Simulated assay, not measured.
Amino acid sequence: MDRLRREGAPYALATVVRTVSVTAAKAGAKAVIAPDGTMLAGWIGGGCARGAVLKAAREALADGQPRLISVQPEDLLAEQGVAAGDERQGVRYARSMCPSKGTMDVFVEPVLPRPRLVVLGASPVAVALADLGPRLGFDLTVCALPEDQPVFASADERIEGYALPVESPAARYVVVATQGRGDLVALKAALAVEAEHVAFVGSRKKAEALSQKLQGDGIGLNQIGRMKAPAGLDLGAITPEEIALSVLAEIIVLRRKGQRDTPELAKIP
Results as ranks from 00 to 15, higher is better:
residue 1 M to C: 04
residue 1 M to D: 03
residue 8 G to V: 07
residue 8 G to E: 07
residue 9 A to T: 12
residue 10 P to L: 10
residue 12 A to K: 02
residue 18 R to Q: 11
residue 22 V to H: 14
residue 22 V to N: 12
residue 23 T to S: 05
residue 24 A to H: 07
residue 25 A to D: 01
residue 26 K to L: 09
residue 32 V to W: 00
residue 34 A to T: 09
residue 35 P to Q: 06
residue 37 G to R: 03
residue 39 M to Q: 15
residue 45 G to R: 07
residue 47 G to H: 14
residue 48 C to Y: 10
residue 50 R to D: 14
residue 51 G to E: 14
residue 51 G to K: 06
residue 52 A to W: 06
residue 60 A to D: 09
residue 62 A to S: 15
residue 65 Q to K: 15
residue 67 R to K: 14
residue 67 R to F: 03
residue 68 L to F: 05
residue 69 I to R: 05
residue 71 V to D: 07
residue 74 E to D: 14
residue 77 L to I: 06
residue 77 L to Q: 12
residue 78 A to I: 03
residue 80 Q to C: 04
residue 81 G to M: 15
residue 82 V to R: 08
residue 85 G to I: 03
residue 85 G to W: 13
residue 90 G to K: 12
residue 91 V to K: 07
residue 91 V to N: 08
residue 92 R to L: 04
residue 94 A to R: 04
residue 95 R to F: 09
residue 97 M to R: 13
residue 98 C to R: 12
residue 99 P to S: 06
residue 99 P to I: 08
residue 101 K to H: 15
residue 101 K to A: 14
residue 104 M to I: 12
residue 104 M to K: 04
residue 106 V to Y: 05
residue 106 V to E: 02
residue 107 F to D: 05
residue 107 F to V: 02
residue 109 E to D: 09
residue 110 P to R: 05
residue 114 R to E: 14
residue 118 V to C: 13
residue 119 V to L: 07
residue 122 A to I: 01
residue 122 A to L: 05
residue 124 P to I: 00
residue 129 L to C: 06
residue 134 P to N: 07
residue 135 R to P: 01
residue 135 R to W: 07
residue 137 G to M: 10
residue 138 F to I: 05
residue 138 F to Y: 15
residue 139 D to F: 01
residue 139 D to H: 11
residue 142 V to Q: 04
residue 144 A to K: 01
residue 145 L to I: 01
residue 147 E to T: 09
residue 149 Q to L: 15
residue 150 P to Y: 00
residue 150 P to Q: 06
residue 151 V to Q: 15
residue 151 V to K: 15
residue 152 F to L: 09
residue 155 A to Y: 08
residue 156 D to G: 11
residue 157 E to C: 14
residue 159 I to P: 09
residue 165 P to T: 06
residue 167 E to M: 01
residue 171 A to Y: 00
residue 171 A to I: 00
residue 174 V to Y: 04
residue 177 A to H: 04
residue 182 G to A: 08
residue 186 A to T: 00
residue 187 L to C: 04
residue 191 L to A: 02
residue 192 A to K: 06
residue 192 A to S: 14
residue 192 A to G: 10
residue 194 E to I: 00
residue 195 A to L: 02
residue 195 A to D: 11
residue 197 H to Y: 15
residue 200 F to A: 03
residue 201 V to W: 02
residue 205 K to I: 11
residue 205 K to F: 08
residue 207 A to S: 15
residue 209 A to N: 12
residue 210 L to V: 04
residue 210 L to G: 08
residue 211 S to W: 09
residue 213 K to Y: 08
residue 215 Q to L: 15
residue 216 G to F: 11
residue 228 K to D: 12
residue 229 A to K: 06
residue 231 A to W: 05
residue 231 A to M: 09
residue 232 G to W: 03
residue 232 G to C: 10
residue 233 L to W: 12
residue 235 L to Y: 12
residue 235 L to T: 09
residue 239 T to M: 03
residue 241 E to Y: 14
residue 244 A to W: 06
residue 247 V to M: 07
residue 249 A to C: 10
residue 252 I to D: 00
residue 253 V to Y: 01
residue 253 V to E: 11
residue 253 V to G: 02
residue 254 L to A: 14
residue 259 Q to M: 14
residue 260 R to H: 08
residue 260 R to S: 13
residue 261 D to F: 00
residue 264 E to K: 13
residue 266 A to W: 01
residue 268 I to N: 06
